[in-house]
């Protein structure tokens, strides 16, 4: 790597004023909504104890709205808190939620799947220039070196369709699409090569279920992997069951995944789970022209069919 390239690596992608403006707009709107009683709670982010960290928060009083922030550390997809898996949050009443573009796609998906009603939800969209990669040095600013892989190829920096847009987008440099490159690399391998790649990753899986628990679309009350009579797939954290679990999860998310890549971010074993989701999204786009978007779509690609669907693989 030459010197200028190294220099480019540490150029901050956002400045303080960008986060400050978004934070200010979110606080204003949250205070207004809570004071007027339009919503019972606002789901947003607050700063964590450690420098450069943030965490989800559910704010129910206008005074607390001053704790809300937005920064490059606001990595979570908060749509998680709207699902039926989070009854205690839904039970509060009408909700407002802070959403980045990728979170907005998840909201659109949940609305399409009749999990959330759009008119019962206030969406505070944020112009998002990208967030930190998991494990990135939080003492450093958001740079080419610390930005999440999903953000390098983001096409939804502005969550259109939100009720309000907080902040404005700084100039966006072109970033190398590392995830697409990795996907292409895997696709070019032999089946045996891909098997070896996934086997190594999946064998480290401990079934902490973080991938499932943070996924807005994993809201089933009875997950297939928890069933034991009959057992559809092994629930023990052994290589065989792990492989089956991740295949099944990718299949259940095919045509539904919004691409927020939370599963990959939270994996404590660094399994690149979003590659599976990316692969499925890519195939479903090629096969059926379907793409997860910012607007709710009536039906996902695997919930409908056409007479003209490809069947060249069927004898």
């Amino acid at each position: 790597m030459n010197k200028s390239a190294q220099k480019l690596d540490v150029t901050p992608l956002v400045d303080e004023s960008y986060c400050a403006a978004a934070t200010q707009a979110i606080r204003c709107e949250a205070t207004r909504l809570l004071t007027e009683g339009t919503v019972a709670a606002v789901i947003g982010y607050q700063a964590g104890r450690r420098k450069g960290t943030a965490m989800p928060t559910i704010v129910s009083s206008p005074e607390k709205a001053a704790e809300l922030i937005f920064s490059s550390a606001c990595v979570n997809n908060l749509a998680l808190y709207l699902t039926k898996a989070k009854k205690e949050v839904r039970g509060k009443g009408r909700l407002a939620i802070v959403a980045k573009g990728c979170d907005m796609r998840a909201l659109a998906g949940l609305i399409a799947e009749s999990q959330v009603k759009r008119d019962e939800l206030v969406i505070i969209g944020v112009a998002c220039a990208g967030v930190y990669a998991s494990g990135a040095d939080r003492a450093a600013p958001l740079t080419n070196a610390t930005i999440a892989r999903k953000c390098r190829e983001c096409v939804v920096h502005l969550p259109e369709g939100a009720d309000l847009l907080a902040g404005s987008l700084p100039q966006q440099p072109m970033l190398t699409p590392l995830e697409s490159q990795e996907l292409a690399r895997l696709e070019a391998l032999t089946p045996a090569g891909r098997w070896a790649f996934w086997k190594e990753h999946f064998s480290r899986c401990v079934r902490c279920m973080a991938c499932r628990q943070v996924c807005p679309f994993c809201y089933c009350e009875q997950c297939l992997c928890d069933r034991n009579r009959p057992q559809a797939l092994e629930s023990t954290p052994r290589p065989a069951g792990n492989m089956a679990w991740h295949i099944v999860r990718a299949m259940h998310l095919a045509g539904r995944c919004a691409g927020c890549a939370e599963c990959e971010r939270v994996c404590p074993m660094d399994i690149p789970l979003n590659l599976l989701n990316r692969k499925m999204a890519k195939e479903l786009k090629e096969l059926y022209g379907y793409e997860a978007g910012l607007q709710p779509q009536e039906k996902g690609p695997l919930a409908e069919y056409k007479d003209t669907d490809d069947q060249s693989f069927i004898k």
Partner: peptide, 10 residues
């Protein structure tokens, strides 16, 4: 969809 998935897994 499933075919492409398991082919991707190897």
């Amino acid at each position: 969809a499933f075919r492409t998935l398991i082919e991707f897994v190897g």
